[in-house]
Design a binder for these strands. Structure first.
Lengths: 137, 137
DNA sequence: GTTTAATTCTACCTTTAAGTAGTAATTATA
DNA sequence: TATAATTACTACTTAAAGGTAGAATTAAAC
């Protein structure tokens, strides 16, 4: 019951970037070191974030990554969507395809409340919101 | 963000068995058919459930599986534990190892409430509780 | 122009989860 | 005792996630 490594890494990367307002361009080497994420894996993730338009990359010497959109407009759920990791409204905790009002799984009722809270946490937390929180890693 | 197939299957199997109070012994062929779970995979899961002592198996002709403990004494979290799928108190939603009061991740505060609800759902739901719920699958 | 520091691309390797196959062991029943 | 029905064991295959390697591309700086 947890997020994929890619999602976890991506959120940590972007939250860290959002926290470093001063230095507008950040490169992969530095991010990998500070956040203790394998460099090549981080680079792969960054390429995905660029493709999907969350950040832009500046190639070549003195290059790096910066946000394409305002951090207040990027929600955690947007990041999870990239790695197919967000919680869909119709997601059943026991994985049956037809779990709904008519025919529901044994945990259907108990699942509703935590599901909604998780969705709320992911959908209503922007990078700006969470950037200041916790330690800078 | 979901349980492993093994956990999902195991919960569905045991909830179904708990629901069939009358027929005390259930065999793998029937369970696999009714629950639409690959037979060999189900058999592998049942062997784990036997090893860990939740159910006992009767081998040979007319054999099958039945509960070893009362269904009111088996919690969903006991099942998740078998497949290392339950939510630990110290589990960080962003996967950092040292997420606590001193140094916490960017989502630490938001994660507390849904985490506790999930733990509550898993720890406080017994098979007896959930057996009657929903459809019989 | 050459060098250098950076991203990007393609392809691969490793680990884990998920699922399958075949056979041995067990036991009620005929 | 033979048979059929059942679980248990061992080993394999497949698919997906996680991670790595190396070369190509880009562009600033010298």
């Amino acid at each position: 019951m947890q997020l994929s490594n890619s999602s976890q890494y991506a959120i940590r990367i972007l939250a860290y970037m959002a926290d470093q307002k001063d230095s507008e361009l950040m490169n992969a080497t530095e991010l990998a070191e500070v956040l203790d994420i394998p460099y090549k894996f981080l680079a792969k993730i960054m390429t995905e974030l660029v493709k999907v338009g969350l950040v832009v990359s500046i190639r070549g010497r003195e290059g790096g990554y910066k946000f394409e959109k305002k951090t207040s407009e990027i929600m955690v759920s947007d990041i999870l969507d990239i790695f197919n990791d967000s919680i869909k409204d119709e997601q059943c905790v026991l994985g049956i395809g037809f779990c709904n009002g008519m025919c529901k799984c044994a945990l259907h009722d108990q699942w509703m409340e935590p599901k909604h809270l998780l969705q709320k946490m992911f959908r209503e937390s922007s990078l700006e919101d969470i950037a200041g929180r916790g330690c800078k890693i």
